[in-house]
Design a protein around this nucleic acid. Sequence first.
DNA 1: AAACATACTTAACATTTAATAGGAATGGTA
DNA 2: TACCATTCCTATTAAATGTTAAGTATGTTT
Lengths: 246, 246
Amino acid sequence: MNANPLVTRLQQFCPLDAGDLQDLNALSLDRRHIAHGTNIVHGGSAANHIHLILSGWAARYKVLTDGTRQITALLLPGDLCGVRCAMLSQMDQGIMALTPMHVAYIKPQALYRLESTSAGIRHAMNWCSLVEDATSRAWIINLGCRQALPRTANLFSELSERTMMSVPDSLADSFLPLTQLELADTLGLTPVHVNRVLRELQQRGMVALRRGGVMMTDLSALRQLGSFDGAYLRPKTIAIGEQTAA
Amino acid sequence: MNANPLVTRLQQFCPLDAGDLQDLNALSLDRRHIAHGTNIVHGGSAANHIHLILSGWAARYKVLTDGTRQITALLLPGDLCGVRCAMLSQMDQGIMALTPMHVAYIKPQALYRLESTSAGIRHAMNWCSLVEDATSRAWIINLGCRQALPRTANLFSELSERTMMSVPDSLADSFLPLTQLELADTLGLTPVHVNRVLRELQQRGMVALRRGGVMMTDLSALRQLGSFDGAYLRPKTIAIGEQTAA
DNA sequence: AAACATACTTAACATTTAATAGGAATGGTA
DNA sequence: TACCATTCCTATTAAATGTTAAGTATGTTT
């Protein structure tokens, strides 16, 4: 793992110069271990850090008054979350660890100061937000247009792509540490129906079921079934001058 | 209408100082009339402007290979869109006018330069993105958790809130210029089922149906049925020093 | 006025998904 | 080992939504 994973992450989006690297490395990263099931951010509470996920998975979710829960984002190693946490409290959303995790806590003011002074860092952060935005729109499309089977396959394809980008040499590339209940709350289905869908995917040889997760065994079949196109996860980095602002 | 609607918009999110106002007013706004049905941005084409909607409604959408269309955002007067258009082409999404419109075309480079020099403008733009982000997450929740009737009521409540914020003294506050087909593509339902839902809402006295749109007649009932909470549309503006980065 | 395209409405039927309930496996803990 | 809480699996029934098809309005163009 890089001495400063924030550097690794931001460089995916925008080339950074020596000064940027120095400034980022000067940020003290407060690394913490988080137990499975812990709430990193509570719905309704003020969020006073930016979180960078070093290992493990988390879910951003909201619980409605009738008790139903919707997971609105899945956060993987390398993901920056809480960039927008100031809003989370008003939105009553929370973030929960789905596995044991390592998380770097970053002081927002410190990062904000860097954004003021470095166009490169500002751009990298913007691109980071752009990918988040594109991903949530892809979820809208998935929920709105696809039925349970392709919807599930599409989600799995996205998660496969994202794990490969963030931890490319991991042996566990294709394991999704989500219970069927958590999948249900992500996909807008009931746990019972998720079970039916997973069984069908298993019969077709695309996944193998484990307690507490799913092992993907035929990625290209999943991508085809879910008509997945991951272009939105890999925005072409463009020079600062050409940047379409914001 | 303000001489510079961009100023009006950004000031909703963050107080701007005299210098900011001067700089923004110096931006040449290229105002154009757009006919109903026109594609402002084509999926697959490069987007080279930021668009500020002065009047009329537009939809951001994607057409899947099987022909189904999902509308991923509705854009109302005062909305800035295309801040992230560089990505639209890669995402194969387009933006289409749902009504006749007036749109201001802004050169991204010019706005980008202002962001470099003014923390206030940078913050205002960030808050603008935050509201967009919160809105798309609200759509995920709506699509994932609610059935057709409350889902429709929730969307109507959001749109009512947004129209009131953007054109508060309009007489047409409560008219939604969306055909039932467009509503279907927004809500992830079939046009036939949208018709059933609208008829039900009409029977309950919450809406009146018009050709080409829906008139909302009982907003509080719609909000209750859709369990709508619009806090995410009105983020509390905070001072720059306290800003949680982004 | 006639023709036309678009939007809306309605009905019958099919399919998907939800709801409910109960049981079986798994893993942790006293 | 016994207990307990999850998670997972399965079956049945019911509800929500999709599909197909056809007809009716409405506004526009000729």
